[in-house]
């Protein structure tokens, strides 16, 4: 019984089509299904909303223009003007994370971003990309990022160590932040929903008491939508900050 109502059941991965390439599991699972759904819906929406490309935008186009200018301003302000070539990447990242988070809010659906494997893959993509970009753009000067100018020589080893650790922990903090937020939010929703059900089966008093977790769940749902947006925003803006470091390593 406990397994049936486990709040973690929603995170389980069930293969739909078993696939494997060179011994590596590539099964099409419920997670893959929702990735395809998110990307498919995003593609459908963005393409159809921008089809006319009207000078006076419709609803969908106005929304996308807002997103465009929002992300463009984010990239410009946090990563600098020379980060413009990476705008499509940041935009895609934001849209994918936001789409996955919001899609996960549909009851019974699967939240792609609630899996550390996914968020870590995205964070690693950012981390490896930014590090490579830093070395390609600046060569060895990129290492100046770890040795800020103006630091006393005696403190330099310590500072370099701290900077190195903080740099290396970036993909972990970036991925765990998104994953933990999604995980915790969805567990809370499930736990309180479970309270509603178990209290409701205890007769009249239980039903009356069940109003409280139910009301809490309504509030939490609103909060989770905020978190869904906020985490996508945080993921995108941190990517911009990291891009800034790669483009301008001298602090």
């Amino acid at each position: 019984m406990a397994q049936e109502h486990s709040p973690l059941e929603q995170f389980e991965i069930h293969p739909i089509i078993d696939l494997s390439f060179a011994g590596v599991d590539a099964s099409f699972t419920n997670s893959s299904l929702f990735m395809v759904l998110v990307v498919g819906l995003l593609t459908l929406f963005t393409i159809s909303a921008t089809r006319g490309s009207a000078l006076v935008p419709g609803r969908g186009q106005a929304m996308l223009e807002m997103a465009y200018e929002f992300i463009a301003a984010m990239v410009r302000d946090n990563a600098g003007r020379d980060a413009k070539p990476f705008f499509p990447f940041v935009f895609t990242l934001f849209m994918f994370v936001l789409g996955s988070n919001v899609m996960g809010m549909i009851p019974g659906s699967f939240t792609v971003t609630s899996h550390i494997a996914v968020t870590f893959a995205l964070a690693a993509l950012v981390f490896v990309g930014v590090t490579l970009l830093g070395f390609i753009k600046n060569g060895a000067k990129f290492l100046k990022l770890f040795a800020p100018s103006g630091v006393p020589l005696a403190l330099l080893p310590l500072i370099i160590l701290i900077e190195l650790v903080s740099y290396m922990s970036r993909p972990i903090s970036l991925s765990v932040r998104l994953f933990a937020n999604m995980l915790a939010g969805h567990i809370m929703l499930k736990v309180f929903a479970g309270f509603v059900i178990s209290l409701g089966s205890l007769g009249a008093i239980g039903v009356a008491a069940a109003v409280m977790p139910f009301a809490l769940n309504v509030v939490l749902t609103g909060l989770e939508f905020l978190v869904a947006f906020l985490q996508a925003y945080v993921f995108a803006i941190l990517t911009c900050v990291y891009l800034h470091d790669a483009l301008h390593p001298e602090h």
Binding site: I13, S27, V39, A117
Partner: peptide
């Protein structure tokens, strides 16, 4: 079995990137 997530993530993310960067943006 996490590899299936990463493989499908790569596919879908790359697809979305191409759609957004080549058409929508």
């Amino acid at each position: 079995s996490f590899t299936n997530q990463i493989i499908w993530l790569a596919l879908t993310f790359a697809f979305l990137y191409i759609v957004l960067s080549q058409v929508v943006l």
